[in-house]
Design a protein around this nucleic acid. Structure first.
Lengths: 197, 197
DNA sequence: CGCGCCACACTAACCGGTCGGTATGTGCCA
DNA sequence: TGGCACATACCGACCGGTTAGTGTGGCGCG
């Protein structure tokens, strides 16, 4: 019964995506061959190229999924009915938690983005900019209300915070002393403390 | 006169290293072929393998150079005769300036480190830890003196700051509105502000 | 209700091209 | 004349992508 799922019941495209995500994070995009991916997913190359246009396409799908989830979560926190300090703190902490919970995705995101074809890279960058701008708007809102310092341009503050998020996949270890939530609280705290007037 | 230098007078090993640095930053380690490097340096593969044991060796040399310079500079600033706040601020700003002045190196460092062979990777990591610990000691010194907040573990603060340094190669553009020194001052300021008691 | 058939979901085999690395040759200076 | 500093030519492995083929589930038709 070769029909979209295997013995485990998981659809083939999802199996391919999961295998690719893991392998890209472990070895990098260029060092992962299409052959490895299909073997890990228990299918053949034909199956992969039936669902995805190219190896590049597979990588793009990983990004699209991450971006969609993060944008949704940011919109949720930014749109809450609460003081801007609370909204920013929760949004800043949430992106840390979800990044840690998907460290493979984060690793791929920051390490392999430049491997995307130019047009796909452009697309990802523009979606990423949307996210960045939503976050920046939150900071500017606080600056206009006078609850955040104006000492640093909001743009730079955003890059400062997301630098640390980016960096997580380099140093965070699940078996370390801090839970994801603890790390998130600390990093959000550092951000809010830096923004004190 | 095939003797260690070419028409421009630069020694062959340095020319190879410079070409490799530029190409690794532009295209990534895996996508840069040895052939491209030697062509950019104006020699042949025989010359490269005469001076370097492998392509991997070449990458390792790039790291070693960066680490040596950064460690020297940090030791200089940390050892100054000045209050700990000033020493930390200057060290934090300096690493930003030198990173921006060598964005190619930074790009390679954070994007390609996992391409190193396991033993070379281990070596780089241990040298990097030395740097991290020297920086952390500076923060702990301030915490013990009571001039820095103890709210966040010093380790996390270091990762927070170096996340933003790491991130520079992603967003900083030389033709942007901010000079390297301005960016450095802002980022050092954010760090010091976050550390206010 | 049953049956034929076709679109779909893949498989197997293969291709041109590229890669890191090496073995060997050659000219020049001490 | 020996040896250092390269150049030349080449190897075996592997890669992303393509193509022609195959088995089968479901659905239109009688």
């Amino acid at each position: 019964m070769p029909r979209t799922t295997d013995s485990a019941g998981t659809p083939v495209p999802q199996r391919l995506l999961a295998a690719a995500t893991r392998l890209f994070a472990e070895q990098g995009y260029d060092r992962t061959s299409v052959q490895e991916i299909v073997e890990a997913a228990g299918v053949t190359k034909g199956a992969l190229y039936h669902y995805f246009g190219s190896k590049d396409d597979l990588l793009h799908e990983v990004y699209a999924r991450v971006l969609r989830v993060q944008q949704e979560r940011l919109d949720h926190f930014a749109g809450m009915d609460a003081p801007v300090e609370k909204r920013l703190r929760e949004a800043a902490a949430d992106v840390v938690v979800t990044t840690i919970e998907n460290l493979d995705d984060a690793m791929i995101f920051f390490r392999s983005m430049h491997h995307l074809s130019p047009e796909k890279n452009k697309q990802v960058r523009s979606e990423r900019r949307r996210y960045h701008e939503r976050f920046r708007a939150l900071i500017e809102e606080g600056q206009e209300q006078g609850v955040f310092s104006r000492a640093t341009p909001a743009d730079l503050v955003v890059d400062y915070h997301f630098g640390s998020v980016h960096h997580l996949s380099t140093w965070y270890r699940p078996d370390g002393p801090l839970t994801p939530q603890e790390v998130a609280d600390h990093l959000a705290d550092l951000l809010l403390r830096a923004l004190r007037p």
